[in-house]
Design a protein around this nucleic acid. Structure first.
Lengths: 353, 353
DNA sequence: AGGGCTTGTTGACACGTTTTAATTCAGTCG
DNA sequence: CGACTGAATTAAAACGTGTCAACAAGCCCT
């Protein structure tokens, strides 16, 4: 341990004082200053009730004076796991996930844990990279919206006893999940468009390998069937990115052919992109074509034409998922896996009136 | 080290095989399997060029077979610092910071590091809590948009030799910073509104303790002066939150009195909130009142009335800041602190035409 | 043949914390 | 007065990795 010696003059008497280099103040130095053993300092930090009040005060004083900051990696190494959980989302730029993350963070910080937020960007490779980092960090638990149906990538963590909760992804059996019924949401959206009189529709979506996209489509088709319409009344427009840019691309495709009566977008960012592109091309919403999005993000109501949408309980989603996760972490034995399914809600605004 | 013994039957012969419990595969077990010393495995992981090709192949094989995952905390403990940097932003819900975070992440993952993203929510207390966690995690460096002018909270990290770069906050002297000229931006916005004929203006902003808010105001006043108008031609409307909600609050205040000719908002979220509230009250933008925001987020162009705004090079901001930070980390001695200042750009749309 | 290289590999220790069992000590009861 | 109890504290042993000095082996050159 490197040390600096400093000269201190008190009342005319010169003292040599051993001063630890900053960043070098460990539990040992604190212990020496407080005149106790390292074990006691550790107890003050982790189980203060086991330490006599006077001793505790002395130790806390020493901690303050020396600017001691506990070394998290040492604690993690010793414990075998950290006090952090991983959160892997499909797109940090999507307000849906931002809201989920808020719910997560509120619960987690109440319980004195930390969140490591990762972005898979809908790419399985990036997802795998993120999971590796989280495994290396020995996170206690994992919240993830998987990029595809293949959950085997999660085994890297699960084999090591890390609790996992799937977010916005319904699972069966041996894992917890918290989801919103996307089939119901798709049904809601398209049933509403049909009510309004639409007969030829388009579904603007990201890759159908993304379960949310596929389920919303399934619900949409169910609504068609219920109205006695054939599946071909709904044309799929698949774009690579689920953001405003992707929406622009979809609009180009739509404008190239006969416009449908109504457009259902797999999320609001796509819908905003479609709306912008259609407006620029002189198409009026909802007069020429009705439009509905999904997620009901904050911006939808402030859009050029306030956007109809399907609202999901996002904050709740993050909150419940985290509670489930931490419960499993705290009592892995007595934990029964649960699959929770929320119901979405239709919000009608100008764009489909 | 706990182990499970498993019974394996091959060709009628029963073997006892020692199998490591999962999560218990360390560098030692890999070494034994590959018939080398732990030191060599470590070398394969960290300086592969020092290991003979044949040995390396054998070790890599063993790593794959046993599903070894390096224990990050042990590595961090040994090294004294982790391969992660901290990023503390004012509001994860704000697309401005999301864009910055994207720039950061791209650089960081190229250089094989990780980002720990923290949200201070503009609260100095939460900022302090975040900094403590980052200090405990022994991050290599810190990117932060401070909540206020008091940078002493950063000493917790800086004293420990952690490199710091301020993001979107101009600093002098002994620390790197990457910022956008907010005074110029405020000037640009208000000069434009004055050009358009406005004579009585309002400035909707978050707390003026936030430097960005104060600087944009300063720029706005400079524009007034240049046009020969008194400072009182610009009324400040201060709201606690810089989001759409805050914008709604500001609009209520404005509607309670005489409406000004034009409104300058300290960011686009505020502007969207103002726009929504004004529209609901029957006020037409830009006919009754002109409106301009700040940040030029993606949604601004898709707003009810496409929003004029001040565009900042957000992605660049994150990218350059991270490069600066990692350079300082890699060569703390030969590093000269830099203050980089970008210039913002005026984007005129419907709301101030 | 032997000295000086280079290249590859090895042990052993250190990093800072938590935890367990062991120890001390004051007080209480028989 | 000695044995016992319980509370408070301690000493020592991990946790899994990276580093570094030391060592081995093979090679070239004189």
């Amino acid at each position: 341990m490197t040390r600096f010696n400093s000269v201190v003059t008190v009342n005319g008497i010169t003292l040599w004082e051993e001063v630890p280099a900053l960043g070098t103040v460990g539990i040992k130095e604190v212990a020496r200053r407080a005149g106790v053993s390292p074990g006691t300092v550790s107890n003050v930090l982790n189980r203060p009730e086991r330490v006599a009040a006077a001793t505790r005060a002395r130790v806390e004083e020493a901690i303050r004076e020396m600017g001691f900051v506990r070394n998290g990696s040492a604690a993690t190494l010793r414990a075998g796991q950290s006090r952090a959980i991983g959160l892997v989302v499909l797109d940090v730029g999507n307000p849906f996930f931002v809201a989920v993350a808020r719910g997560v963070e509120d619960v987690v910080s109440d319980r004195d844990h930390a969140v490591i937020l990762c972005n898979s960007g809908e790419s399985p490779e990036r997802e795998a990279r993120n999971l590796r980092v989280l495994a290396e960090q020995r996170v206690r638990g994992l919240l993830i919206t998987p990029t595809d149906e293949d959950l085997s990538r999660l085994d890297l963590l699960r084999e090591r006893g890390v609790a996992v909760v799937l977010v916005d992804h319904f699972a069966t059996g041996d894992v917890c999940s918290v989801a919103v019924d996307d089939v119901a949401g798709g049904n809601l959206a398209v049933a509403h468009l049909l009510d309004r009189g639409a007969r030829r529709l388009a579904y603007v979506t990201g890759p159908l390998a993304i379960r949310q996209c596929a389920d919303r489509r399934k619900g949409a088709r169910r609504a068609l069937r219920a109205a006695g319409l054939p599946a071909r009344a709904l044309e799929d427009i698949v774009v690579p990115e689920m953001n405003a840019n992707g929406g622009g691309l979809a609009a180009e495709k739509l404008l190239a052919g006969d416009l449908p009566d109504a457009i259902f977008c797999a999320n609001d960012l796509l819908a905003l992109g479609v709306l912008r592109a259609l407006s620029q091309a002189g198409v009026r919403v909802p007069d020429d074509v009705a439009l509905i999005g999904y997620d009901d993000i904050e911006f939808s109501s402030a859009a050029a034409v306030p956007l109809s949408s399907i609202r999901q309980p996002t904050y709740q989603l993050g909150k419940i998922a985290t509670e489930l996760l931490l419960d499993e972490c705290d009592d892995p034995g007595g934990h029964a896996h649960q699959q929770i399914m929320f119901q979405p809600e239709l919000v009608v605004r100008e764009s489909s009136r």
